[in-house]
Amino acid sequence: MKKSILILSAAALLMAGCDKISPDDYTQSAGGGSNWTNANVHRAFVEKYTGPKCTNCPKADVTLDAAHHQFGDKLIVISVNYPTGQGVPWAGNPDLRTEDGTAWSQYFGISELPAAYLDRGTKQYTGSMSEIVSDIEKVINQTPQAAVAVNATAEGDSISITVDVELYSQLDGGLSLTLALTEDSLVYKQSMPDGDPDENYVHNHMLRDVITGTWGDDIPMEGLAGEHKVGHFSYKVTNSDIQLQNCHIVALLSRKSDRSVINCAETTIN
């Protein structure tokens, strides 16, 4: 009897223990267009709260620029213009404050600048944020729980966006997708650490608008590993100051329960 149990156990393990895939099936269509490449990467999302009259904000920019240099497209940053105080624009300069950015900063209880959050976690980074770099690396080294890919094309002032989401793990509690429009190379006056404002400071990753709801749109997924969903969005640019050639679309896949970011992706607008 004991021998039979042993043999049966061994046979069960052997039968369950090895999948064989024929060469014709090594690959399968993934959807997501060209941006699906490296979609399996766990990217880190940093939202940085900044303001044109914040003297220490350029220090945070230096840190995050260096992090960008180190991690490449595995790091996605959105700079959010704080709604009051140091976030108020200098006279004659563009106003980059947004309703969604205001809601985000209120949710996190931002009271000093600069401030940042990583993947919408619980830790707030302030000052030069040097410690954020090692935390970004930890996030990037984690096995992703989901893949996100985003493609965007523009025709005139209309943008068509396609987002692919594929879950690798079971994710309970509901998911949401946030799409944001960011713009680089915005030149306007910025207070500097030495006290003298720089009239020609280059601002990158600035939040211009949130395309979905402020905290994203619900994704109709059951949260099961292997689930794949494609979503199509369209957006009309109403602010004529926005230069689409300098813009990106950022896609954030988040948990509805605590708004933490599971994975993210970014694309230029073609």
């Binding site: 993934a30 959807g31 060209s34 490449t37 292997g226």
Partner: peptide
Amino acid sequence: EESIPSAADPASR
């Protein structure tokens, strides 16, 4: 399961 792009065809996994 996880999604690893194919080297030969980036649109495939």
